[in-house]
Write a protein that binds this DNA or RNA. Structure first.
Lengths: 178, 178
DNA sequence: TTGGGATGCTTTAGGCTTATAATAACGCTG
DNA sequence: CAGCGTTATTATAAGCCTAAAGCATCCCAA
């Protein structure tokens, strides 16, 4: 859940006139915004995790993997290799190995060697996996909808826009090496 | 890093006139916003993790715990109990047990029984822990600042406000039981 | 054709996190 | 003051995640 710091945020000398360079007030504001975003994410993610566990006896990473396979079936109808899957899920190869092992055991995905390259394997949803995913998807959308209910459509658009700016900014390698 | 879903987000029948109830377009927008927020959080958190590891050979949970103890020294000068610490960090008790064990081994926190209640223990920063934290805090602020650099102060305030609305909304137990 | 670097994947070791169960101390009530 | 529910903490089992090392295969160039 990765939270807190707060020290620098909640209590900071009211006017620590910085010799030069950066504004401590601005720093404090950024930290506050970051912590609030972290809190939001953790709250929502935690609720989704719990709901997946309670309603479908599964986990978020498994759901994500199934959803990714389904989404990818458009541009890769025969499935994805482990590497491609790990890239799309933005996790390491080793992580995907374990996840796929479990999902294969559960019968939700299949993993077959890719003849043209015997190192690689194609992972795809089984019919059971597709059914399971289709059962979870509407519920998932509902949970998200409920949690966003108090944010008006206009505010949501604005939030989306601002998060886009932030994402861009966070990805930009400001300081050192490119 | 918990990402993806995308299926429902990127590709959704253009006009799936829902019998009644909810608007699929609105659902899609919410999902998009949620995924973008998740991406932002993961990017920032990942960079902070990496920076903590590379620069200070430590982890985010450890840093959080130290920061929390420091922040709490105002209202709890003698330290926090394990339970109180787990509440403030918003993680389980068992989690804090392991974390504190490691930090005690590293000499950054002390853990002593609390005489009035022999079940409890008071955890506090050692001088070495305080020094370590003070060394990390400015760097941490710098990393966050750099990543937020592309978001104007005005946009940041707006983002902060919207996240507040979202947090409120996500915490409200809409659907079922209170 | 054969050597060697690149690529795909798994394994390993270590840490984080949770839920659940167990243990210990507390504190109240009868 | 004895029993019992509550609270503080730790132990355990399972899963998620990473970095780094290792193995198999591929592919190219000498």
């Amino acid at each position: 859940m990765t939270t807190a710091i707060r020290a620098q945020v909640e209590s900071v000398p009211e006017e620590t006139v910085s010799g030069q360079g950066t504004d401590p007030d601005a720093d404090r504001a950024m930290l506050r915004t970051w912590l609030r975003m972290l809190a939001c994410t953790n709250i929502i993610e935690g609720r989704v995790r719990g709901a997946l566990r309670d309603n479908f006896n599964t986990t978020l990473p498994r759901f994500d993997l199934l959803a990714q396979l389904d989404a990818s079936s458009v541009d890769a109808p025969d499935g994805l290799t482990m590497s491609e899957l790990s890239r799309r899920l933005m996790v390491t190869n080793g992580n995907v190995t374990g996840l796929v092992n479990r999902l294969v055991n559960e019968g939700f995905v299949s993993r077959v060697v890719f003849p043209p390259d015997r190192r690689a394997q194609l992972v795809s949803l089984t019919p059971a996996g597709k059914r399971a995913l289709d059962g979870m998807t509407p519920a998932h959308a509902t949970w998200i909808r409920e949690m966003f209910e108090g944010v008006s459509p206009h505010e949501q658009r604005e939030l989306y826009r601002l998060l886009g700016r932030l994402k861009q900014s966070a990805l930009t390698p400001t300081g050192r090496a490119p």
